[in-house]
Computed example of a mutant assay.
Amino acid sequence: MIDGARTAMDAVAERWGVEASPNPETVTVLVAAVVVLTAVPGIWRVARQASTIVHEMGHVLAAWVTGRRVSGIKLHTDTSGVTVSRGRPQGPGLLLTFLAGYPAPGFLALGLVWLATAGHSGAALTAYQAVLVLALLLSRNTVGILSCLLAALSTGLIWWHNDPEIVGSTVVGLGVFYALAGVRGTLDLCRVHLRPRSRSAAGTDAAQAARAWRALPLPPAMWIILFLAVSSGTATAVFWLLFS
């Protein structure tokens, strides 16, 4: 058993240490492909589930950091999700938990691309796999389990095969996807709040953040502006890293 654990650790260390950075031509092709992926409504409805996983993991991380207990996450077929946590029903911890979802894809994108452009694509893909595995362990419904499992397996095969060029391209592609998905997801949130008499608006992260801490009673629109600023800022930083 000890030998098996040592072998597993050696395999992770080997893949963590892969150094690769895609060439400019490959980056341009990847960016064009991902733009189509996030722009075409039919494709986006499917691909958005991968963004929802990271969105919910943003809530999870914020809940843990602020001392809340996380019961699990659930993903739905309409690409919405929910993170269940326990703790104080009001206050900064709950507020930060609600605020952490929409910025999460952008910050993940920035981390992935920063590592890739620094030549540490293996570390980036290993960290991404860890996020997916943790999301899988926290999933509490069938859709969530299947979604996380599919995401983990699809990129896990690339991680295990460990071809430096493919690993580097995958990390850049993931980074661009999550950068654009963060912006696209926030714009979708805007549309929900702009619909007249939308019942869904009351349950969004922005609406719940507005009710989370009475000492900071900002309306949902202010939190949406914050989400837009963060998602746009991280996306801009990602493209600056790739093309500077």
Rank of each mutant, 00 (worst) to 15 (best):
A62E: 02
A63F: 10
A63L: 07
A63S: 14
W64M: 13
W64G: 02
V65W: 10
T66G: 05
R68P: 04
R69N: 05
S71Y: 03
S71K: 13
S71W: 05
G72D: 07
G72Q: 09
G72H: 05
G72E: 09
I73G: 06
K74D: 12
L75N: 03
H76S: 08
H76E: 09
T77L: 07
D78Q: 01
D78E: 03
T79P: 04
T79Y: 04
T79A: 15
T79D: 11
T83V: 08
S85F: 13
S85T: 10
R86K: 07
G87P: 04
G87H: 11
R88G: 11
Q90K: 14
Q90N: 09
Q90G: 00
G93T: 05
L94M: 11
L95Q: 15
L96Q: 03
T97R: 06
T97K: 01
T97G: 06
F98V: 00
F98E: 12
F98M: 01
A100E: 12
A100W: 08
A100K: 10
G101R: 07
G101P: 12
G101T: 05
Y102L: 08
P103W: 04
P103V: 10
P105W: 07
G106K: 10
F107T: 12
A109P: 06
L110T: 13
G111R: 11
L112A: 07
V113D: 10
V113Q: 08
W114S: 14
W114G: 15
W114M: 07
A116N: 11
T117E: 15
T117M: 15
A118T: 09
A118E: 13
G119K: 04
G119S: 08
G119I: 06
G119R: 04
H120T: 01
S121K: 00
S121E: 04
S121L: 01
G122H: 01
A123G: 12
A124Q: 04
A124H: 02
A124L: 03
L125C: 05
L125S: 01
A127E: 05
A127Y: 06
Q129R: 00
Q129E: 14
V131S: 00
V133W: 10
V133F: 14
L134Y: 14
L134T: 15
L134I: 13
A135I: 10
A135L: 08
L136H: 05
L136D: 00
L137I: 04
L137W: 03
L138P: 12
S139A: 15
S139H: 11
R140F: 02
R140W: 06
N141E: 11
N141F: 13
N141D: 13
T142F: 15
V143W: 10
V143L: 05
V143Y: 15
V143K: 03
